[in-house]
């Protein structure tokens, strides 16, 4: 079964069309990148996968998450998809976590509220996941402002994975972090993803990051998919003119001299 199928997805709000005929697929255990600039529709696509389109939007096309039809789903199915099949993480963990609640309360909330787990079972599950992302369960008693951005993003990953989703939607999840912290968080995420055979839709504005981290990459522009290729080819002069333009806009570091010790 394919983890995510989006077929000819179009989405418009009364003032304008946001997505045109977007089609993409994520196989089980695959990390697929969606790259585009702001306004390209990449975030809207991810949100539509969870049925989170704007209230006044009209949607056509098909979205299926692990075989569940999302576009025509009744609220109960949508709830099931959001609760068990797919989870989403965002750029700013501080906006997702309630600043006045302890990390533990926020992180266990999904398991307790949606899955009906007991508080202690949820805490045990989240603690185990925190250990996997390299954090001690001490953080459960801390408040968001006491943690760094990288630590918080790992907490959010642990909380998102606590319900065992098959598909993770990562919307600019590491864009606010500096390069070294970004690498640490992504290393953790890759470990968990391989171990659980989870699929990831990795949304980013950073073409090089997508090229280095993902298996395949879709490039979006003005609400449509304009390019689709194996990630590794991103770095070797892409054929598509828009992808090439994006690649050239990325500031380059001068080539380093090899140091002789």
């Amino acid at each position: 079964m394919t983890a995510l199928v989006v077929e000819n997805l179009s989405l418009s709000v009364p003032s304008r069309q946001i997505l045109r005929d977007v089609s993409l697929r994520v196989q089980v255990g695959e990390v697929v990148g969606v790259v585009g600039e702001s306004g390209s529709g990449k975030s809207t696509t991810a949100r539509a996968v969870l049925g989170l389109q704007p209230d006044d939007a009209t949607v056509s096309g098909e979205i299926s998450v692990c075989g569940h039809d999302v576009v025509h789903a009744c609220p109960a199915v949508l709830q099931e998809v959001r609760a068990r099949q797919a989870a989403m993480i965002f750029q700013e963990p501080r906006r997702v976590l309630n600043p006045v609640r302890r990390i533990g309360d926020s992180a266990c909330e999904r398991l307790v509220r949606v899955h009906g787990a007991s508080k202690s079972a949820a805490t045990a599950e989240v603690s185990a996941l925190l250990a996997e992302v390299g954090l001690s369960d001490q953080v459960l008693r801390r408040y968001p402002h006491e943690l760094s951005g990288g630590m918080l993003q790992r907490v959010v990953i642990a909380a998102a994975l606590s319900t065992g989703p098959r598909l993770l939607l990562a919307d600019e999840a590491t864009s606010a972090l500096d390069v070294t912290t970004q690498a640490e968080v992504l290393a953790v995420l890759r470990g968990l993803q391989r171990e659980r055979e989870m699929s990831v839709l990795f949304i980013t504005h950073d073409l090089h990051l997508a090229g280095a981290y993902c298996d395949r990459v879709y490039v979006m522009k003005d609400g449509a998919v304009v390019d689709h290729q194996e990630a590794s080819t991103i770095f070797v002069n892409p054929d598509n003119p828009y992808t090439r333009q994006l690649a050239e806009a990325v500031p380059q570091l001068p080539t380093r001299e090899v140091r002789h010790a």
Partner: peptide
């Protein structure tokens, strides 16, 4: 940027995503 003297600068330089970039390796370096 071309020939960093300090190991920290060198580490920062190798952290940027590019061909052959592996997050695990960067994490280890750090």
């Amino acid at each position: 940027l071309r020939s960093p003297e300090h190991p920290y600068t060198e580490m920062l330089l190798s952290s940027a995503p590019g061909p052959g970039w592996r997050p695990e390796q960067v994490a280890e370096l750090r």
